[in-house]
Design a protein around this nucleic acid. Structure first.
Length: 399
RNA sequence: GGUGAGAUAGUCAAGUGGCCAACGACGGCAGACUGUAAAUCUGCUCCCUUUGGGUUCCCAGGUUCGACUCCUGGUCUCACCA
């Protein structure tokens, strides 16, 4: 039991510091029913979560299974400084109301993965405001500049003479102090957070909390292209709020290789179950597409419910496997007669008539499932389903 | 403050008076093959119903029959020096 729990906790991690301590906490839980705390910090900026963020949440959920209470920390105080990690700009400040709105929005998204019963949502302003200037100065005496500059991005910026504000030095200290205030047993974060996470250990020692948190780091999830990290700006993400059909489709479009990565980091299936799937595929008894569908189903169901997931799967097969027309497509009213290229543009499935003409030449355009070869075609009165490629559809009512 | 370099399509990056709507790479879209896979191959990738027309290569002027390419001024970015 303990070994199994430990394996699930280690699953997919990039690095663990002090895994003995984690093992002890697990043992205490299994043998004596003792709970422990796991801290994870989040920015109160707009919580537009994608699956990359949920990797961390998943790990938290795993911990909940094995006796942890989650300290879901919203860094409303620290947001005023802005974590310098990977960024060079100072950021804009958020109003108190905005932070509150964002926090609420976090909760609705996050509790699809986490068990609210075992989660405490905390704001670090509640103790950092208390600290006062004396406490703040005291905090600064616990560390020195040379060591602070060891942090990777500080070092780089210092060497390249990019300005570093003194307040930025406060960020790791304050994040570490959060661990003192919360007396966390474990803290988890991304690999880029290593320095800050370790600061928690350092400060817990200096403030004599009586324990030093273990640290667990999760890797960055690759996006749909399988190479770069999942991020909104790169457009290779699967958003938590994506519509069921999109979500399902996006997951299915991922490469087989990447699928296993997603299984490891995003699925609730146990390691054993996943291994069984892998060997099944290797031996040819399981079709990789089936395995991928099952993953897509699991994730879609998590965010949209079982029914929506089933519907998305049915819809997907209808459109792609049987190449039929999707159920829900946008409708447009047009005036007859209308040139086909113009109609495609009006229906927003082509950006310009030039592009439309090119696609017609390539045989990518269909009307009611029939390929269009005449680029001069005029549409008369009637209702048509226009299609470009495999996934762009529109219903045109020509009057 | 001084000196030098540079600003080209979604990104990177050629072109340095006509052959330029502008090489190439990446990305994107489409077609073939498929499991909507991935990989691979092929085509396309400013706009306009196109053997053609229009508007582009930071901005404003100028030289020229003709400028992304030359000149003047401006804006911004970067590097080195102070």
């Amino acid at each position: 039991m303990i070994q199994e729990a430990l394996q699930e906790i280690q699953r997919g991690t990039a690095e663990i510091i002090d895994s003995e301590r984690i093992e002890k906490l697990l043992t205490a839980f299994v043998k004596e029913g003792k709970t422990y705390t796991v801290k994870a910090g989040f920015d109160p900026t707009a919580p537009d979560l994608h699956l990359g963020h949920t990797v961390l949440l998943h790990k938290l959920a795993t911990f909940q299974k094995f006796g942890a209470r989650i300290q879901f920390l919203i860094g409303d105080f620290t947001a005023q400084i802005g974590d310098p990690t990977g960024k060079s700009e100072t950021r804009k400040q958020l109003s108190a109301e905005q932070i509150q709105i964002n926090a609420e929005s976090y909760k609705t998204q996050v509790f699809k993965i986490l068990d609210p019963e075992k989660t405490d949502v905390v704001f670090n302003a509640s103790w950092l405001n208390e600290l006062g200037s004396v406490g703040m100065l005291e905090l600064t005496t616990t560390f020195n500049v040379a060591r602070m500059l060891e942090r990777d991005d500080f070092e780089k910026r210092y060497k390249s003479q990019t300005p570093i504000s003194i307040s930025e030095f406060m960020y790791p200290l304050l994040q570490g102090y959060d661990s003192v205030a919360l007396k966390s047993d474990i803290e988890i974060g991304g690999t880029d957070q290593k320095f800050n996470l370790l600061m928690g250990r350092h400060l817990q020692r200096t403030y004599e909390v009586g324990k030093e948190q273990a640290v667990l780091m999760m890797p960055i999830l690759e996006g749909l292209d399988g190479v770069q990290k999942m991020s909104k700006s790169l457009g290779n993400y699967i958003g938590v709020e994506d519509a069921p059909n999109d979500m399902f489709g996006k997951i299915l479009s991922v490469s087989d290789e990447l699928m296993w990565r997603y299984y490891e980091l995003l699925s609730d299936k146990s390691l054993k179950e996943i291994e069984a799937l892998e060997s099944g595929v290797r031996e040819g008894t399981l079709h990789p597409k089936k395995v991928k569908e099952s993953l897509a189903h699991e994730i879609t169901a998590r965010f949209h419910g079982e029914d929506a997931a089933v519907a998305a799967q049915v819809e997907f097969n209808k459109v792609h496997a049987k190449s039929q027309i999707p159920t829900d497509i946008a409708e447009f009213e047009l005036d007859a007669p209308i040139w086909i290229a113009k109609a495609l543009q009006e229906c927003a499935i082509e950006p310009s008539t030039s592009q439309a003409r090119r696609d017609i030449k390539q045989g990518a355009v269909k009307i009611d499932q029939v390929k269009v070869s005449d680029e001069q075609l005029q549409l008369e009165k009637g209702e048509y389903v226009l299609q470009v490629g495999k996934r762009k559809f529109a219903r045109a009512k020509v009057k």
